[in-house]
Design a protein around this nucleic acid. Structure first.
Lengths: 351, 351
DNA sequence: CCGAATAATTCGAACGTTCAAAATGAACGA
DNA sequence: TCGTTCATTTTGAACGTTCGAATTATTCGG
């Protein structure tokens, strides 16, 4: 294989200048149609492709997004982040953007990586997946004018930072709808299995349950369990709930892991028909017939890219100066109904 | 933020030439120690970082690996690929390599992406995750001299292609060991739940069971079930096995998904103490106490990178011409023992 | 058919780096 | 002191692209 053809080769073959070839590629509308065709033909014939690095050097933009890819904590809930990254790659491709991944050991290390990738002009903009309470990365990124968007709200910030663009899913609304759905199907005492506070996402989801479960005071407190995420934890938590003097007649969980555990517990207790709803609609939920709340990842990714690059282009917009236009999007999840939340209605014992 | 400093800026600040600055970065050993320090000090002071694109343009290598990131089919077994990508990013970083991801709709589309990334000099080499029977991509990549390595053997090729570098895990040996472990713990009739043939990986794993289960003829046939991957499928398959006139006293599964389903089936049948072993040691297996065979992904990734870039550097080696040195590595998995495979021994009913 | 306006194309330079070769400096033996 | 050798540093060019300005071709009204 010889060397790749360059603009000059194409130019020569098509009897035009370098620049015309460049124009055919980047702004075809300014070149005469007959010329355009001749050049295009030469491009095809020679199999010319622009050299990405040369272009980036000249234009001073890399058209590349950086994402930190974390190890999956749980395999189940982690799958969401994974789907997110997948969709990101998909939609980035449609905009002629590339996606570069990196790993990091802690937030400080992540920032070091980001700095390196950005200073080397490897990456134009970053996507932060998941935000903590008072996330230290956000301030740093804003401070250093690194273009970025986060999937996750700025939890715990009193006044929202206008320089910070973010997308998130309204878990509270999602849980609220799911609980209403359970109650509409006959449940009176919907319990909650969630995560320990403080957890931005977790607290928000719990709030959705609180405002829709129709319970008050000690009763509500008794029906809410906080535990770390995980199948085992979910099973334990559900088992404890079922032991209560006044046990729940449905369970709303903050994750599919917890819900899967809860399902096991109810089956073990011979209560296979107790309705359960999970969160994230992971493939496992689909496999075991678990109703679950699905995050609209397509929209999340689309919104993130729009915030970063505008409606269509691949020119990264700097972090906004003021909040004239909203630098964030809050999207609504939807409940995917499956067998697990209709058990009180239909006649099947848990298959 | 003004513009980033360049080699020239550093050169001027340190009173040396461009090239000396370059040397300090790329081959410090050839520059005098006192000079090196002076230049280094200037680099640090100005916060200089080499411009990656400029460097790549000049050196004609991108130091970037491309990987196709697929959507997870199952969420459980898919997690392995995910961990693989994570480790790849990790170890690539240690070699100063970057990882670029892309998605594709089918193999043809994948090749189109690969071509684009490579022709644009975006990516030096590719990692193929998973190989099919008679994989069409391999021939194409070899033909087009695209440096690559696959995680997965060239299934179904009569004569191994010496240009094709690959790494794989000896699933057969892994299953064999696990079955022996089950038998050592008292099982006489170890059943198999696997995937339909032909499936390179699946057939290989099954072969491991066949040669170690100690069963023959019709008996062995009766204890082997083939089904698509999935929790539900695993449950059904296990339920069927338990209905047999001579049911198994242990179950070996080709995946954790199947094993999880099998676990549910045994619990439902009141046989919670039937030993079960899965494959891939996914986080879910850990969560539910399922023994499982773990693929040594660290070694897999290390071997893949070594095949591509040699022992240490980041210079991609072209696809080998002959098979003087082995262009592949077959690694041995190990069994992670948990409760699920010791049930016949200890006294706990499935907690 | 001319001049002006506009469309289309070309030219020279620059993006920031490293390669290859040339130049300088230091050290040493004769 | 001088030529040689080796270590160190510098110079000019090149990688392939696009920007900005300049040039040439075309169109059109009068």
């Amino acid at each position: 294989m010889g060397r790749m053809p360059t603009v000059d080769d194409v130019a020569q073959a098509a009897q035009v200048s370098r620049q015309t070839v460049s124009n055919v590629i980047n702004s075809p509308e300014i070149v005469r149609e007959t010329t355009r065709q001749r050049v295009q033909e030469a491009i095809d014939r020679l199999g010319y492709r622009p050299h990405a690095s040369a272009r980036r050097l000249r234009t001073r933009k890399s058209s590349t997004i950086g994402v930190r890819l974390d190890p999956l904590r749980d395999g189940i809930s982690g799958a969401v982040l994974d789907r997110f990254v997948h969709k990101l790659a998909e939609q980035a491709d449609a905009r002629d953007l590339r996606v570069m991944i990196f790993t990091a050991d802690g937030n400080a290390d992540e920032l070091a990586h980001i700095r390196r990738l950005r200073d080397g002009s490897d990456v134009d903009a970053f996507v932060l997946i998941g935000t903590d309470h008072g996330d230290s990365r956000i301030a740093w990124l804003v401070e250093n004018r690194v273009p970025f968007v986060s999937f996750g709200r700025p939890w715990g910030a009193e006044t929202p930072d206008p320089h910070h663009r973010w997308v998130d899913v309204d878990g509270r609304a999602g849980v609220r709808d799911a609980v209403r759905h359970l109650r509409a199907n006959g449940a009176d005492r919907v319990a909650w299995i969630g995560w320990p506070s403080p957890s931005g996402t977790g607290d928000e989801r719990r709030a959705g349950w609180e405002e829709s479960c129709g319970l008050e005071g000690a009763d509500r407190v008794a029906l809410a369990v906080a535990t770390e995420d995980g199948v085992t934890e979910g099973r334990r938590a559900a088992a404890a709930l079922l032991e209560l003097p006044e046990p729940p007649d449905a369970i709303m969980c903050a994750s599919d892991s917890l819900a899967l555990g809860a399902t096991m517990a109810t089956q073990a207790a011979g209560l296979a028909r107790l309705p359960i709803v999970g969160f994230d609609n992971t493939p496992v939920a689909a496999a075991v017939g678990l109703s679950s709340i699905e995050q609209p990842l397509d929209e999340v990714v689309a919104a993130a890219l729009t915030l970063l690059f505008g409606e269509h282009g691949d020119d990264v917009q700097p972090n906004p100066d003021s909040d004239e236009e909203p630098g964030h999007r809050l999207l609504v999840p939807r409940l995917v109904e499956r067998r697990s939340s209709h058990l009180a209605l239909d006649g099947n014992p848990g298959a």
